[in-house]
Simulated assay, not measured.
Amino acid sequence: MTSSDSDLAPAPDTAPGSVPSDPLAQARAEIDALDDALHDLVMRRAAVVARLAASRAKAGSPSPLRPGREAMILRRLLARHAGPLPPVALVRLWRELLASSSAQQGGFTVAVHGRGPERLAREHFGSLTPLEILPSAARALAAVAGGEAQVAVLPLPEEGEAPEAAWWLGLDSPRLQVIARLPFLAAGGEEGALAVAPGAPDPSGADRSLLRLEAVGEPGRAPLAAALAAAGLAPRMLQLRRDGGVLRALAEVDGVLTADDPRLAGLPVDRALPLGFYAVPERGDQG
């Protein structure tokens, strides 16, 4: 049986190695070339991270997490970003890269309490990072304190929440500290979470600190806010809890606040304890 010329497959428009004449084929060839170039750069980046991991291992460096450094990287990329790719997609791409880099330098497990924090932890720490879902914030913190996990991701504190949900009341600072706020690229009204890990985070250049205050005699909200402002610690957020005659407050203030900050000594409270700090999230509506 013979075939007519019309039954034969059409001859290619171009010779092997030449540029296709069909616009769709041209675009696909360009994408393939770009994918190869991106892959080459990703492999080079992983090789640099491997060298860094080896040097840190020799120096006995503890945690591979560098939330301040990661925030600086993302801010720089967002500042130079242009074109049709949404900024949130850019951040998601680099969060996976950053998570894989952390895993190269030691790996870690994230303890999570809450459905919202679970989603945010997955987006922030990467799709391959092990998550341990736990029934309470206290259990998640205990997992980090006991070495079962290296990070706990917990719901944002809310004024008036049940005592068992107010995990910041018993946070063992400075042993455990807040190191990040999730998500880094935040949209208005979006659910948030805080990440807690052993030791202090690294500054990002634009940070906010959390401060736990305790006072006998139940000073009011306005006098406490005024005292913080007078000390140069004007609160962006101030949550109060009263238990008998004791007031406990959680304040969010600008900058990096440490336990030896002289501004804390002048506050009209019985105890002022920094709980860590985090890089200020970027707005999700930027173009």
Rank of each mutant, 00 (worst) to 15 (best):
P86V: 10
P64I: 05
D254G: 12
S3F: 11
A206L: 14
S61E: 15
R56E: 09
L233C: 01
S63L: 01
Q105M: 02
L120R: 12
A37Y: 04
F108I: 02
L131W: 04
A137G: 08
E252P: 09
E214L: 15
E282M: 10
Q150Y: 06
A279W: 01
R181W: 06
S6W: 10
G192L: 05
A249R: 00
P16E: 05
L267Q: 02
P84E: 14
A195N: 03
L93S: 08
F277V: 09
A152W: 03
R175G: 04
R236T: 02
P223G: 11
L169W: 12
P262A: 08
L247E: 01
P10A: 10
L182A: 13
L34G: 05
F184Y: 08
D5Y: 11
P20F: 05
A231D: 14
V196Y: 03
A9H: 10
R208V: 13
A121F: 05
G60V: 09
L169S: 05
A226C: 02
D32A: 14
P201Q: 12
A82T: 15
P183Y: 10
A99I: 06
S4A: 13
E214N: 07
L275G: 01
R212D: 01
L267R: 02
L85Q: 13
S61F: 09
V110K: 12
A145D: 12
E118I: 00
P10N: 09
A152F: 06
G217V: 01
L8N: 12
L211T: 00
V151T: 10
A193K: 01
A265V: 08
P223C: 03
A89W: 09
A272R: 04
D35T: 12
A231P: 06
E252G: 13
